[in-house]
Amino acid sequence: MAKAVVRAGLVAVGLAWALIAQVALAAEMKTYVVAGSQAATLDSCVEPTDIMRRKHMEFIQHQRDKTVHGGIRSSKHSLSGCVDCHVRDEPDGEAVPIHQKQEFCGACHAFTAVNLNCFDCHAAVPKGPGAALASKAAYQAVGLEQSPRAVSDGKEH
């Protein structure tokens, strides 16, 4: 009996919390996109923002296997796309590595204490010829032809 009461109480608390969280989110709609990045000029990411917040790691992980093993490079869920669009450029045009503490990936991962090891291997700024090709699918998914960076850099190859 007592157990049932406790359980019901817990469920109630859980529901109330979920409700509050929803309201709070709706009220704030805070954006974490970094000013000075391409993403700040766009309306939406490759998926709706709340889905990206919860599931970006699944998208990236799913895509990575298709790319590494299948050679598929046309996915809008590419890490190169994330980096290219969300990286912040200094006024002098130099991109700041995206996993640094104050940057788009780094800030949130530091806050949530979730280890971020993508950039042990992956480039944390768009670098080298071919970077624009790698992010192209993601840009096209949000309505741009390709990375504006590629245009300003001139030739991508």
């Binding site: 298709k66 299948g70 598929i72 192209k136 993601a138 096209q140």
Partner: peptide
């Protein structure tokens, strides 16, 4: 396209791969 985002535009030249090797 930005909303539904199927994402892939085919190029007449062999572009980024869409099918597994």
């Amino acid at each position: 396209a930005a909303l539904v985002a199927p994402g892939v535009i085919m190029h007449s030249v062999a572009g980024p791969r869409t099918e597994a090797v």
